[in-house]
Nucleic acid binder design. Sequence first.
DNA 1: CTGCTATAGTTACGGCTGTAACCATCAATT
DNA 2: AATTGATGGTTACAGCCGTAACTATAGCAG
Lengths: 147, 147
Amino acid sequence: MGQSFKLEKFIPYRLMVAAETVSMGFSVTYKEQFGMSRPEWRVLASLAQLQHATAKDIAAHSSMHKTKVSRAVFELEKRKWLLRKLDETDRRMEHLSLTKPGVAVHAKLVVHATAYQAKLLAVLGVNTSDQLLTMLNKLEGLHADHW
Amino acid sequence: MGQSFKLEKFIPYRLMVAAETVSMGFSVTYKEQFGMSRPEWRVLASLAQLQHATAKDIAAHSSMHKTKVSRAVFELEKRKWLLRKLDETDRRMEHLSLTKPGVAVHAKLVVHATAYQAKLLAVLGVNTSDQLLTMLNKLEGLHADHW
DNA sequence: CTGCTATAGTTACGGCTGTAACCATCAATT
DNA sequence: AATTGATGGTTACAGCCGTAACTATAGCAG
């Protein structure tokens, strides 16, 4: 008899495929319309949400490695969508905030993000989408102690 | 007022974070115990399941780009876990199959994969895990016509 | 003050990846 | 059999990424 292990029933695999599919669906927006990468989009979204934060804050909030954040911040700064300001009392850290153009780009992306989210909710069924987030919560907590 | 868009409610983001968390949990097994990459694990699992397949078949079955498959197949062949045989009538394609050592490695990995899957089901609740796969099905179908 | 340890952020490096180009082969048409 | 177009698979290239090492700064112990 053949093996009974089926890749398509394996949750790590299925979750990754779904994540890539869904992520790709939205990435065309920030890529093609604004030439942004996913890390840049995440930093933009985090910073808009936190209003004012350090790179470390953003890394925690957006689940990204600090080097990814560092590179994304650099790019956003280059586009003048983001401003750095050294902390006066602890000069190791810098406070980040969006510029007016940065806020504007974010606002436009949020329109698309919200529309895309609505499409996803429609596909899932509005009632079940909360269940999905609940499940994802549980899964993300799996290795919480390793971090 | 602050923006109302919250990254942590955005499904593409949450799905990707959960997928990475869960994937990482299993990757330590094939990485540290067998020095394998994720593409290699997928090819191994696909080939064990299909018994006999071409690179193109595996790409379709494992949702991977053909270049990824090509490179993974090369590595598995180097380790002598996989065998290529040219098709007699169409020499463009090659039929792949696992060697005995390849089957053995797969069997060991399946033990771990099954245990990990069980842990995930326990975390989710066995009844809800089917709902998760159903949701993932729907999400994966989203852009079906683009492929 | 001096030295030790820790922290915020950057960067060099090697590895992995997708895109596009490529090679070889096949099939259909002429 | 020559041409054209499609297909299975590989590869060159450039970009992205994580690890580890690094810089600069801070804080604390002596």
